[in-house]
Design a protein around this nucleic acid. Sequence first.
DNA 1: CCATGCGTTTCATTATATGAAACCGGGTTT
DNA 2: AAACCCGGTTTCATATAATGAAACGCATGG
Lengths: 247, 247
Amino acid sequence: MDDTKLTVRAVERALDILSAFTDETELSLTEIAARTQLHKSTVHRLLASLEGKDFVTRNAETEKYRLGFRIWELAANLSQSDDPAIMLQPEMERLRDSLGETVSLYVRDGGERIRIQAVQSNQAIRRVAPIGARLPLNVGASSKVLIAFAESEVQKQVLEALEWSGAAEKQSFVRQMTEISRFGYATSVEEREPGAAAVAAPIFNRGHKLVAALAVSGPSNRFTVEKMKEHASQIIEAANRMGKMLK
Amino acid sequence: MDDTKLTVRAVERALDILSAFTDETELSLTEIAARTQLHKSTVHRLLASLEGKDFVTRNAETEKYRLGFRIWELAANLSQSDDPAIMLQPEMERLRDSLGETVSLYVRDGGERIRIQAVQSNQAIRRVAPIGARLPLNVGASSKVLIAFAESEVQKQVLEALEWSGAAEKQSFVRQMTEISRFGYATSVEEREPGAAAVAAPIFNRGHKLVAALAVSGPSNRFTVEKMKEHASQIIEAANRMGKMLK
DNA sequence: CCATGCGTTTCATTATATGAAACCGGGTTT
DNA sequence: AAACCCGGTTTCATATAATGAAACGCATGG
């Protein structure tokens, strides 16, 4: 076992303990021990350290542990961050590393969608589209998302833009939209570019307003429909997390 | 050196690193090392652990470290807490342990103030007042705070209630109010109870609305005017932190 | 009164965190 | 270019410090 550890086990364990509080707001020592698969004694010591630094406190009534005020302090100094494109980048990289495909971020600007951030897949064959690119809003997974979750007014506009096309087209369009808003994500296969496929999910800010679409895209032979469905929930989760960062 | 350590040093250090981000949103490894008085190598290992668990990430541009999304996750699950009296209790205990005096929390209800939470000094001689007690709004440090930082309408009401008293009284009252709102805290010595003194600071929620007054009180011989002034900033800080927890 | 469950403490044993020093890469200066 | 500096990263010998089994204290309640 020489897979050189460049991390500190005790710290990782302590952080696991903190992470346990994503599910529950209050946990007893033994509950924590159970969740983290650590021995009581260890958890106790770790909790003592966390409590000493005010990362957790005990509810004097229930004797259980909960997150301490230091988390607030950190979170406070955190939300005032600046450029969303930069803020969201780390999370996008996480997703890229997890799925191995290019991840992009789009916003809607009138009848266009603009690619405001991207982290490239590091695989040999990959989709490329420059940051800042202005793309049509009528094709592509992210476009659909940006429409399906937009205010109804925007949707009306888009529908009117379809004026020239047949009633069947319109109907299909409407059905697609309802489906997307139902499942929470959209897919596209070779819509804008031959050989390219993508999944996209909406990003809502803390005020529940649609602000962007998060898209994962790759070559359609590698990025099959099954794979896309398989990854959808993960992408949606990432989008949710990202949304929480935006006010 | 047998002062039994029931804490884990590595963890404490890691938490110190996290705490460093209360001041700055972005720090480089060496900056952190300087602040925490730890050796580069150690910081590096600790940061690797923190990064692995997504408590910090690196801004891909600047190569510097910043807080990771796990902090958001935690903070998110944190803010939905329920009863302010319970939420704020740990922070009040901190203050009590630091100053050694009884800490109370008051809200205004019409022409009264209500004590909604308290953590007692553990010293022999101590001020006592039961939770839920409804007290007059015209005397006491916390009363003054609850008036001085209230909407002007409330202040007008209180002033009208002083109708019967002389113009000099009124003027003195107004001057006191402006002073309090200027310095951010109020004091009282033997106003409501002989032998008792108190300092109070306002608690504003995240919407900058006055929601409560935080008071520290003790016997006036022990809790002198000098001591009160000395502790004022600490009390104000605690009140600020507590306010951040309330939406 | 004895079981049960939880938090806390002790303690020997060894894994494991530590920090000095060396290393690496990329800028900047000479 | 060579030399230098300055971040970040890795290595490695050392003893420090984290570990977990077990025991303890202390409630609660069967």
